[in-house]
Design a protein around this nucleic acid. Structure first.
Lengths: 209, 209
DNA sequence: TGTACATCAGTGAACGCGCGTTCACTGATGTAC
DNA sequence: TGTACATCAGTGAACGCGCGTTCACTGATGTAC
């Protein structure tokens, strides 16, 4: 398996799949040192190539970051799909919400890169609204399954947006120390997340747990 | 009025209130060029002093940023107080929420600095939980006024947190192009914000408008 | 009221740093015949 | 199957840049006598 290769490891002159290796290296840096450490040079270093090598695979730094962000959205989408499949019908939306927030909490640096990339374009990635499998459509379709009226298009979009906002807000806030005592009181981070989402009304949960 | 002075303007060797001028300069840069342009040197330049001058007033860059963030929290708090005072009793919470989101949307760069500073400390500013006049306490107290049980401490905190998350999430999402058609359909940005908050259930509104 | 002097709040030059990007190059690969 | 050659994917040195911070300094201020 090549994707966990580190800088010093021997490799032929031609890499084979440097593009892939660079994205992986970027994710390793994100996890270990956070978003501020994510420079093109650092990524090349981590992948064990010269600072110029990435330019054969990405036009510039932004394009690399876009690729990293893209992968993040895919992973998130997969996690949401799985969470939905595993949940009982009535708690599907709740499960998706928890999966979303947990992804953000487990990959905070990656999550930030995803949103920063989106902010630069002033748009969330196109796959969100168009792609049938996108995270956005998953939330919307689940709302319909739970009884939302698919004919009331504006209302449905507003509800989906509201749910997304709530999850995003919670994802960004959940790390603050202010909430440590609440987490302790409720028995952990996930119960805390569930409790906050429950207060947001949008996330009905069937039988708890 | 000194606070709008620009770099070239004549001024005596001793500035008078350089600390104030630096914070103002930082805010001008934020508004004009965004958070990535906010370097210590740029702030000094904008204030019309040498790059070393700020060090007589701030230990380092982070301390200047903290001061900027602090001012942001104060302005936000003031805006929320005013919004609450102006609203009818039953729509006070809704008014506070709108004021919060509008502040963030009108000062996006400042808002980001505020949260980045908080993230670095892994805590929202102390004034939030302790200070009777803080934004956090304002939301909580308003919830009590609207009928929340002040004896159910955990539940009250969860509800306040949920409201905060929703507002923060909306504040960060509202700028994306995806929502342009919703804003158009609903007649502007503020109606859109109201509609999303309404879906979040936490923000009861008395008579609309 | 004047003067000596400590203190304060600036200056401007310099430091080392890591960054994104470009360039001329070279080693490896694969295709045409 | 062997060879010529175009193309691809690397190298490594160099570019200019702006950054945060430090330093020895100096001009202005205010206080003690």
């Amino acid at each position: 398996m090549r994707e966990t290769q580190t800088a010093a490891e021997a490799r032929p002159y031609h890499h084979g799949d440097l593009r892939r290796a660079l994205v992986d290296a970027a994710r390793r840096i994100l996890e270990a040192e956070g978003p501020t450490a994510l420079s093109l040079r650092a990524v090349a270093r981590e992948a064990g190539v010269s600072p110029a090598a990435p330019y054969h695979h990405f036009k510039d730094k932004a394009e690399l970051l876009d690729a990293v962000a893209d992968e993040g959205w895919q992973i998130l989408s997969t996690g949401m799909t799985k969470a939905k499949a595993d949940a009982e019908p009535r708690s599907k939306l709740n499960a998706i919400g928890i999966a979303y927030v947990c992804f953000a909490r487990e990959n905070p640096a990656l999550y930030r890169v995803m949103y920063d990339a989106a902010r630069d374009k002033e748009a969330l990635p196109a796959q969100m609204q168009d792609n049938k499998d996108s995270a956005y459509c998953k939330v919307r379709d689940t709302m319909i399954e739970l009884g939302a009226d698919p004919a009331a298009a504006t209302d449905l979009e507003l509800a989906t947006t509201a749910a997304w906002c709530a999850a995003h807000g919670l994802a960004e806030m959940a790390g603050f120390k202010q909430f440590d005592h609440l987490k302790a009181e409720l028995g952990g981070e996930v119960p805390f997340l569930r409790a906050v989402l429950a207060h947001l009304g949008l996330f009905p949960h069937g039988k708890p747990d």
